[in-house]
Amino acid sequence: MATFKGRVINPGYYKGEAVVSHQGVNTLATFQKSALSNAKNVIVADQNNPDIFGKNITGKALCLPQTIGSTTGGMVLQVICSMGINPSCMLFSQKIDSLAAAGVILSVVWEGSDIIAIDDLGEEFLNTVKTGDTIEVKEDGTVEII
């Protein structure tokens, strides 16, 4: 078992499956197709991200360095949270970027979302966690890979 501690952006408890992207996650490209088709789950549509392309990330712990792409990104995350098909957790190895930060805050303040967000988990976190691993996230920002 490996344990990491990050900064709590929005707290919560989660135990479940990790989906890992080693490159920046393009929010618009990842979520747009699922949002447009009113899908029940987010199947990642970003063909430029082989780590997570085609994977279902709804209800999972999305592990990533940061988000990238269009500055509509924050709003897109808000939309996904309002539809209730968001990843349960977003676990950032680096400091959260301004677009993801806006997305999480918009979701919490305006949609009442309980999306968990932890940042600054460190490079080693992304080197250790693998897609399919079971992880446990605690309220204080501790992340355990079981």
Binding site: T71, T72, G73, G74, M75, Q78, S98, L99, A101, A102, G103, L106
Partner: peptide, 8 residues
Amino acid sequence: CNRNSGMI
């Protein structure tokens, strides 16, 4: 100006 998201 910071690199903000839409809505911000």
